[in-house]
């Protein structure tokens, strides 16, 4: 990644409840890339995502677009990150459209019933991008898991932020919907957004990501293109597995194969 970095972190350290979760993580990521963040359970992936979004306190420096994250007020931070947490939780049976419209909250559109034309267009764009217009008026609690994940993604896209942070957006989805979500994120990255995706699916990471970050016990131990970052050595050391490796349509193919 030679272009000017959009999001950089230097010497990131996070302690949660007295336990060190992240140690000295430094990275520089550019717009237009789909970055996969992988690592075994408990490696600190979600914590890294949260600290990059400024949702938890951390030591070290984070800069977004050349500005220190810590110097930005809450509202300004919110405009810079579309954050998609695990599970796509919605606590009340609200119509899908209102959920997507909450993506405009950081821009001052706090009431989905009163969107400015600009905000309404952003909501519409996000809904069209992931094809959820047809259940605009349906309650999200009545949608299937796949449909709900698309609504959640549309909500994160509606922020129209330079960075999208998605925490296991493909978890508990069938293969068709996993591909669907990743294709949507890929398309978003292609519109010069920086997309960071936490995933356990190394196959999807290799297939869709430009850049892979490998975390192990709170440290960034490997990064690069999928083939580089997920080398045989890394697979053995970090994940303790071997993998079938190949190339198909000029994308890396990595299929976890056996434990070692």
């Amino acid at each position: 990644m030679s272009e000017t970095a959009l999001l950089t972190a230097k010497g990131l350290c996070v302690r949660l409840a007295g336990r060190v979760v992240l140690t000295d993580v430094s990275l520089a990521l550019s717009a237009g890339h789909l970055v996969a963040l992988v690592g075994p359970n408990g490696a600190g992936k979600t914590t890294l995502l949260r600290s990059l979004a400024g949702l938890i306190p951390c030591d070290g420096e984070i800069e977004i677009g050349g500005q220190a994250l810590s110097s930005l007020p809450l509202r300004e931070r919110a405009k810079r990150f579309g954050y998609l947490p695990q599970g796509h939780i919605v606590h009340w049976p609200l119509p899908a459209r209102d959920i997507v419209a909450l993506g405009r909250y950081p821009h001052g559109a706090t009431d989905p019933a009163r969107l400015s034309p600009k905000d309404a267009e952003a909501v519409l764009r996000a809904m069209q991008a992931v094809d959820v217009m047809e259940f605009s008026d349906r309650r999200v609690t009545e949608l299937s898991g796949g449909e709900r994940s698309r609504v959640a993604l549309a909500r994160a896209l509606a922020v129209e932020a330079p960075v999208i942070l998605a925490d296991e957006p493909t978890a508990s989805l069938d293969p068709r919907h996993q591909i669907d979500v990743m294709q949507n994120l890929r398309a978003t990255a292609d519109k010069s957004v920086l997309v960071i995706v936490v995933t356990h699916d190394l196959g999807l990471a290799a297939r869709f990501a430009d850049h892979v970050l490998v975390l192990r016990e709170g440290r960034l131990v490997s990064q690069g293109t999928p083939a580089e970052a997920l080398s045989e050595q890394v697979m053995a050391d970090v994940f303790r597995i071997s993998a079938y490796r190949a190339e198909y349509q000029r994308e890396a193919v990595i299929v976890p194969w056996a434990d070692i």
């Binding site: 954050y83 919605v90 209102d98 909250y105």
Partner: peptide, 20 residues
């Protein structure tokens, strides 16, 4: 009242949308 609406998505997401 508007913060309650954002909170429908959970505390973490509400915070990411700029709710204190």
């Amino acid at each position: 009242r508007n913060a309650f609406r954002a909170l429908s998505l959970g505390e973490e997401t509400a915070q990411s949308l700029g709710v204190d």
